[in-house]
Amino acid sequence: MAIDLHKYANPRRFLAITSAIYPWSLALTVILLAAGLYTGLFVAPPDYQQGETVRIMFVHVPAAWMGLMIYTFMAVASAVGLIWKHPVADLSAKAAAPIGACFTFLSLVTGSLWGEPMWGTWWVWDARLTSMLILLFLYLGYIALWQSFDDPSKASKAAAILALVGVINVPIIKFSVDWWNTLHQPASVATMSGPKIYSSILTPLLIMGLAYTAFFVTLLIIRVRAEILARRLRILQLSELQER
């Protein structure tokens, strides 16, 4: 037979493990989202400075966290794919990219909706906002690079290199509020001296962060499965052509 079954050994195990995790991560996503939205919209008090607009934070900050976390995940997966030729690593990075792009887009849009009433402007070209926009372009470039090659092994290599070069942007985003003058407020959760916000506001924020993380895991399982099956389909189609 033209098809090397050994190639499937690893993705097979991956599919088995992830389909066992899937119902749990799905349930966790639903529960955490419900808890996060309830505490964020009904329990958390309005901020003493920002009033009710502080509730935008519960969808803005977790989206930005996910944008950074998913990009870091993609860079690690790309490195694993490049170095060890792990068959699922490249596909995981590819499957994660649109999720990260959506979260980054959402952090920019919700940030804009928060900036207008609080800063008096939808957008400023400052370090935090600009580096976040670059992150969105990195995601879009990564997705475009995958689509611009006919040969998936070439595409995965080119995309992996872009992901690894672009990862330099991640610490720039994180520390942009400390390194440059900016309208954006400095870090108030992940600081050296611990969170600087009240637990009534911190709790919904962390729950929403976990909810978005569970959402990412659930969606990633669906998308990686689609990628693995699509590659299997492609190999079958190729071998069919060869045997004709």
Binding site: P46, G51, E52, T53, R55, I56, V59, H60, A63, L106, V109, T110, L113, W114, E116, P117
Partner: peptide, 16 residues
């Protein structure tokens, strides 16, 4: 009404 900020808060949740 969200303290008068309805047009900023709800679109954020809706687009998400």
């Amino acid at each position: 009404d969200m303290g008068g900020y309805a047009w900023y808060v709800w679109p954020s949740y809706a687009i998400s």
